[in-house]
Amino acid sequence: MSNERRLEVLRAIVQDYVSTSEPVGSKALLERHQLGVSAATIRNDMAALEDEGLIAAPHTSAGRVPTDAGYRVFVDRLSQVRPLTPSQRRAIQAFLAESIDLDDIVERTARLLASLTQQAAVMQYPSLRRSRVRHIECLAMTPTRAMLVAILDSGRIEQRTVEFAHPVAEGDDFVARLRERLNAETDGLLLAEAARGLSLLREAFEPERRADVDAVVETITAVFGEEREERVVLAGTANLARAGTDGLHVQPVLDALEEHVVILRLMSNLAEDAEAHDQVTVRIGAENPHEGLHSTSLVTTSYGPDAVAALGVLGPTRMDYPQTMANVRAVARYVSQLIES
Rank of each mutant, 00 (worst) to 15 (best):
S268M: 11
I284E: 05
T281V: 14
P289H: 06
R283F: 05
P289L: 07
T281R: 07
A286Y: 00
D273C: 09
E272G: 09
T296I: 04
H294T: 06
A276I: 11
S297P: 00
L293F: 01
V280Q: 04
A286E: 07
S268E: 15
E287V: 02
S295F: 02
V280E: 04
H294Q: 09
A286T: 06
T281S: 07
A276R: 08
S295E: 03
G292K: 13
L266E: 15
T296V: 04
E272T: 10
N269G: 14
S297Y: 02
S295P: 05
T296R: 02
L270G: 03
S268Y: 11
V280Y: 04
E287G: 02
Q279M: 10
G285A: 08
E287Y: 03
L266R: 13
T296N: 01
G292R: 14
H290G: 01
G292D: 13
E291G: 02
L266N: 13
H277M: 06
Q279G: 04
A286L: 01
H290I: 07
L293Y: 00
D278Q: 10
L270R: 05
L293W: 00
T281A: 05
L270P: 00
N269P: 01
L293I: 01
S295Y: 02
V280W: 06
H294S: 11
E272S: 10
S268F: 13
T296F: 02
T296W: 03
Q279A: 11
G292T: 13
I284K: 03
E275S: 12
N269S: 15
V282N: 07
T281F: 03
D273I: 09
I284M: 09
A274I: 03
M267K: 08
H290D: 11
A274C: 11
E275Q: 13
A274H: 09
A274G: 04
L266W: 12
D278H: 13
A274M: 07
T296G: 01
N269M: 10
A286D: 04
A276V: 09
H294I: 03
D278N: 14
T296H: 02
L266A: 15
P289T: 10
L293M: 01
G292S: 12
H294N: 06
M267A: 12
S297A: 15
E275C: 06
G292Q: 14
P289C: 03
H277E: 15
S268C: 12
E272I: 09
N288E: 02
H277C: 08
M267I: 06
L266K: 09
D273S: 15
E287W: 04
N288Y: 01
